[in-house]
């Protein structure tokens, strides 16, 4: 187990290094000059040249790359060209916003997905099963951005139940402690603000949850159908619905592995989907942070932003792999 962990960690090094290099070259291939972008349309050529020099963009690429890499090792992600603030500090609220959104989405996806899957399997071929599975099929085929727009149309514009966009009510901004607004409002005991935060979360997290929810439901269902063939369950079933909860408990246990797999696989989807969700709901998250940075040719931000997302993604996958081993000793590694 330990040696496996170490091996997995070591294998990450070339991946992350390669990733850094690829991102480094890719963003430099984006047409447009950051110096020009920063100075705006009215800047003179000399001004642009001077700023280019000041930003170190006139140096050879390897100097720039190793400079950046050196910074990474000391935990320095660089400085935003636009705001001139260190990215380490600046990125945190955006990261927290996306994490909060993704976390809520994942919880919704797991809770609804797993339960729907189990119930579908239990009542196989019932109307519930059919409806749930058809919904799940439609769910995996759903473009997030369209779903988001339709949610806005129904719940914000027509029913006026939920706010269209944003993360908080700017009239009464939330005092940030952790930048996870749910936690922040709870810590401060501000229940009024807590509900504001929750209301803002509902639509984007449901939009983001749809695909993973559908996949989890389908996988849980098929896993459960396997499980239900076991003798133990057959006996339980024979005793009727009273046994439902016994089976339910047993089923949950068995659902963990597929759900873990999905969490691993879907993190990328979730982080990617976050860009679209954040665009539609004006959510101040990491996806929009990077997307804006691309528009601004803010090299350090694009680079560090993508790197951080990739590191998170890779790390979650690693944790998932390790959890497999911890949960299910039958899985072997070589």
């Amino acid at each position: 187990m330990l040696s496996y962990t170490v091996k997995r960690l070591l294998s990450l090094i070339p991946v992350l290094l390669g990733l850094t290099l690829i991102v480094f070259f890719m963003i430099r291939a984006i047409p447009g000059n950051p110096a020009q972008t920063i100075l705006g349309q009215l800047a003179t050529d000399e001004a642009v040249a001077a700023l280019t020099k000041q930003l170190g963009l006139d140096q050879p690429w390897y100097t720039q790359f190793f400079h950046y890499l050196g910074g990474l090792f000391t935990g320095d992600l660089g400085e935003s060209l636009r705001t001139k603030s260190p990215i380490n500090e600046e990125i945190w609220p955006f990261l927290a916003a996306t994490a909060e959104l993704a976390f809520c989405a994942m919880i919704i996806a797991i809770v609804i997905g797993v339960n729907a899957g189990i119930i579908s399997a239990w009542f196989q071929n019932s109307w519930f099963d059919y409806v749930a599975m058809i919904l799940a099929l439609i769910g995996v085929s759903m473009p997030i951005f369209w779903l988001g727009l339709m949610e806005q149309w129904v719940f914000a514009i027509n029913l006026e139940w939920l706010p269209t966009s944003g993360r908080e009510n700017v009239r009464a901004p939330i005092e940030t402690i952790t930048n996870f607004y749910i936690l922040d409002t709870l810590i401060q005991g501000r229940m009024d603000q807590f509900w504001v935060v929750v209301k803002h979360l509902v639509m984007p997290s449901f939009a983001l949850a749809t695909i993973p929810m559908a996949i989890i439901a389908r996988i849980t269902r098929s896993t459960m159908l396997e499980v239900m063939k076991s003798d133990f369950i057959r006996t339980a079933r024979a005793k009727g619905l009273r046994m439902f909860w016994v089976v339910y408990k047993h089923s949950l246990k068995n659902a963990i592995i597929p759900v873990l797999t999905i969490i691993g696989l879907q993190t990328g989807l979730l982080l990617g989907g976050a860009i679209l969700t954040e665009t539609i709901f004006s959510w101040p998250g990491i996806g929009r942070y990077i997307y804006d940075a691309i528009n601004y040719r803010d090299y350090p931000v694009i680079q560090s932003g993508i790197l951080i997302i990739a590191v998170i993604f890779v790390t979650i996958n690693l944790i998932v792999d390790l959890l497999y081993a911890a949960i299910d000793p039958r899985i072997k590694y070589n």
């Binding site: 139940w161 009510n169 009464a172 009024d192 509900w195 504001v196 929750v198 509902v202």
Partner: peptide, 17 residues
């Protein structure tokens, strides 16, 4: 909880402090 909170007030009134 959200359901109950959502139906009886509009987002416009939220958290006016």
């Amino acid at each position: 909880c959200n359901k109950s909170a959502g139906t009886d007030e509009k987002p416009a009134d939220e958290g006016d402090t």
